[in-house]
Write a protein that binds this DNA or RNA. Structure first.
Length: 403
DNA sequence: AATCCACAGGAATGGTTGGCAG
DNA sequence: CTGCCAACCATTCCTGTGGATT
């Protein structure tokens, strides 16, 4: 038996998972524990579609992993099924604004779901919009619910013009076209303040708030899924409470909890263990963090990487935080060591904001009186993970090697 | 109570790149 | 091929501001 045989054997014999996909992030379960209130609320709003009416636009808030997306998709799938049963022309379109993070991409996504052919670049946004409207006119009598998930990513970067236009489609095309209603989903409660008053009032016809799960509720969710995902008896008794506790610490993020459980299972399976232990969960936590950081850092432009490296250096030993000015100096040094031009402080200010949004650093504005107003910047990701991720960039590695 | 630091962060604009339409 | 456009990074110029010090 050679090495590969051994590997294959091990995987085939592994009996950890019964159905791993149940734990994947886009799996929508049949039961959503502790979200009955939200399901009822959203259901009663979109139910209007079954009577051929345009449902009110809805604004959904809640932190990451509070079940917003799952509940929304769950309700809309059921709505579509019910509509089919009744012969009502109702459909929904789901767009994730984190993946489609510009007005053009969002419109193109909506249009192509409605069978309008759009190239992924080359047209003006206005052109895509008019093609979409033309299509909607052909769909007179239909009710279409558009879900814009994570719209904070769109609004913060590109403003709310698109939302304004989309909400106007719903109102102004009126009887001449399909009825369009919009469900906006956001993690950021403060987002509303950034919206134009007209958008705010039309999008906020209805509002649903998703509270975070507590540790107990997370346990319920995990148990429900674990039963489908794992073979009986492979989870040591402490595993689920431990996952729940870790995720509860992160503002009750159910997605995080499920990820933990899945990765812990994968680790156990990979090493041929017959049980998933708390130790696996601990390692899963580290691995998830490392992957997350690597993914974020790898797509960063060079100057953003240098800024991040500067943060890393400044917060390295003992010192817990740094400020914009100090960071800019350090960054400037790094740039000159590489012999490249530095960007302006204004730009670095934006880079700081971007890194903050990506969750790799955390920056909050503080006022230090006579000593000015600045941002207090801390590294919020694991330093080692950041360092490793940065060193994958050949240019940045020169700096890391030079120390 | 007024001042003033050290930036925050808005608005306008520019230079590239990649890609469609005709 | 030309004209046009979106997207992205970046610059310039700018007004705004919380609170320790004067």
């Amino acid at each position: 038996m050679d090495v590969l045989d051994e590997v294959f054997e091990r995987v085939v014999k592994a009996r950890i998972f019964r159905n791993r996909s149940v734990l994947s992030p886009d799996y929508i379960p049949d039961k959503l524990p502790h979200r009955e209130r939200e399901i009822r609320a959203l259901g009663s709003i979109v139910a209007q579609a079954l009577k051929g009416e345009r449902p009110s636009n809805v604004f959904i808030y809640g932190l990451t992993g509070t079940g917003k997306t799952a509940v929304t998709l769950y309700v809309l799938r059921r709505l579509e099924a019910k509509a089919k049963e009744l012969g009502a022309p109702v459909s929904y379109i789901y767009v994730n604004c984190r993946q489609r993070d510009t007005p053009y991409k969002v419109l193109a996504e909506i249009a192509s779901t409605l069978d309008v052919r759009v190239p992924f670049t080359g047209l003006s946004t206005a052109e895509v919009y008019t093609r979409l409207v033309r299509r909607l006119k052909k769909l007179r009598g239909h009710v279409i619910v558009v879900v814009l998930d994570e719209i904070d990513w769109l609004v913060k970067r590109k403003g709310d013009d698109l939302l304004y236009k989309l909400t106007r489609i719903g109102y102004e095309l009126g009887l001449d076209a399909a009825k369009v209603s919009i469900i906006g989903v956001t993690n950021d409660v403060k987002l509303v303040e950034m919206l134009d008053a007209r958008v705010r009032s039309s999008l906020g016809e209805e509002e649903i708030v998703f509270p975070p799960y507590n540790a107990k509720q997370l346990e319920d969710i995990l148990r429900e899924r674990a039963e489908l995902a794992f073979n009986p008896g492979v989870l040591e008794p402490d595993v689920i409470p431990f996952c729940a506790a870790l995720a509860a610490r992160e503002h009750g993020d159910a997605r995080r909890a499920l990820d933990l459980l899945r990765v812990a299972g994968e680790l156990a399976e990979r090493e041929g263990a017959d049980k998933v232990t708390v130790e696996h969960v601990k390692r899963a936590w580290v691995e998830i963090e490392r992957d997350r950081v690597r993914e974020v850092v790898s797509t960063l432009p060079l100057h953003a990487k240098l800024v991040l490296l500067a943060v890393l250096e400044l917060t390295a030993e003992g010192k817990r935080y740094t400020t914009t000015g100090e960071l800019y100096d350090t960054y400037s040094n790094l740039a000159s060591k590489l012999g490249i031009e530095r960007v302006t402080q204004r730009r670095v200010s934006d880079i700081i904001a971007e890194l903050d949004m990506l969750g790799v650093i955390s920056a909050r504005v503080v006022s230090r009186g006579r000593y000015g107003k600045t941002r207090m910047i801390t590294l919020s990701a694991d330093p080692k993970a950041v360092r490793d991720a940065l060193s994958e960039d050949p240019l940045v590695r020169i700096l890391l090697g030079a120390e």
